[in-house]
Design a protein around this nucleic acid. Sequence first.
DNA 1: CGGGTCGATTGACAAATATCAATCAAGTGA
DNA 2: TCACTTGATTGATATTTGTCAATCGACCCG
Lengths: 236, 236
Amino acid sequence: MRPGMPDSDYPDVRRLALFSDVANEHFNALMRGAYVQNFPPQIELITEGEPSNFLHIILSGAVDLFSAWNGRETSMATARPVSTFILAASIRDAPYLMSARTLEKSRIALIPSQDVRAIFDADNAFARSIVTELATCYRSVVKTQKDLKLRTSLERLANYLLRQQSRGSSGSEFDLEFEKRRLASYLGMTPENLSRAFKGLQAYGVAVQGSRVTISNQQDLERFAKPNRLIDDPHS
Amino acid sequence: MRPGMPDSDYPDVRRLALFSDVANEHFNALMRGAYVQNFPPQIELITEGEPSNFLHIILSGAVDLFSAWNGRETSMATARPVSTFILAASIRDAPYLMSARTLEKSRIALIPSQDVRAIFDADNAFARSIVTELATCYRSVVKTQKDLKLRTSLERLANYLLRQQSRGSSGSEFDLEFEKRRLASYLGMTPENLSRAFKGLQAYGVAVQGSRVTISNQQDLERFAKPNRLIDDPHS
DNA sequence: CGGGTCGATTGACAAATATCAATCAAGTGA
DNA sequence: TCACTTGATTGATATTTGTCAATCGACCCG
């Protein structure tokens, strides 16, 4: 495969906070050195422990970041367009801590990590954007850790549903963005437990039909879930 | 209190990876604007949710970073000399996600966040050091999250003990670095459960007397704990 | 020396969560 | 259309973890 990102993909990538301030010349250099590929679902893009040769940018589709130990596996996060993933490993030139696999047919750009580090050294605006991005990622993981340590699985699910709802256009209905088994893993529980947790939330006005979730009484659910901006607000 | 760090503290701070590359002039400016204070034990230095006015550097003592929600509280990490904490909040100018309290009598330097951001803008070497530091912090939290999601409490304790041992000078004995109740909270369990977990590890050659831990059969313990560099190695 | 305090430990019990097996239900492809 | 596959759900049960209450033990201070 020859490097070089199609010009049509430039604007989407350029819009990312990470790249919005980088000099044109440097941005173009990064894009010219990038590889863009289309992957079918369920392809393992990255295996944890391997050296981080590329910064990945997901242009379309969805990617699951997961990790395994001793025969167990857990979903750590989901990457959706348009965003980057495994920036920290690229910058540090350290092994990946998570594996990544496509959930759907996905279009992914791969920027050689050494290019990223080179432009990082040459372009101060880019370096600053990286700082902001990393700080945001860091805070996001801290929030997830608080969610895991301070809440029961029922509370995690309730707050997750409220977060999803507020992301959407408003209405009281929305679709789960991925399979329940993956949601269960992301929330740190078994699929069986997730089923029961949904039932447990019926008492607070939550109904599920397949992937369709209806929250009939938001206030009631919030009284139970007690959402907190220091855990649930992605921007704070 | 008047700003200005005593010259005698400069070398310790200068040695931090975060400050080792910053220009002399900028480093001195940061130090001149810093406040250094001695705090007694159990003082709350930071409350989560508040704006991040200072980057903190612990010069001596120990600081617990913890978080609370809905009447529950959990220990997230312990800061030990010489290191910084809550860098991400300072850089992003965002509210603290964690609270901090002294565990012992501690000497803390406070650098106004706006000074940090100013030097960050002016000094590219400093900006790069910040990137490395944040990437390291990020990876550290990811490892903790894997530990929490992939392991039982018994396994977490076993691996924690092995990590502590490898930090020490080698021998098969060492002291726990803080109270067991805090260790329990850090590991995501109750104090009662920690007691039972220690008993459970007796079968693998672990003995505890007060804060003194003896590992009589390291191989046996490792066979049970299955330490993994992508979770347990702080440098990888 | 003798309360008194605080953290650690223990036992009994309860709650949360996982596991296992079976069934159900939706989607797929021959 | 009909097997077939795969994920979701359910029930029964086991394991893990938390809660509550009591006790223990070290340390401090008068």
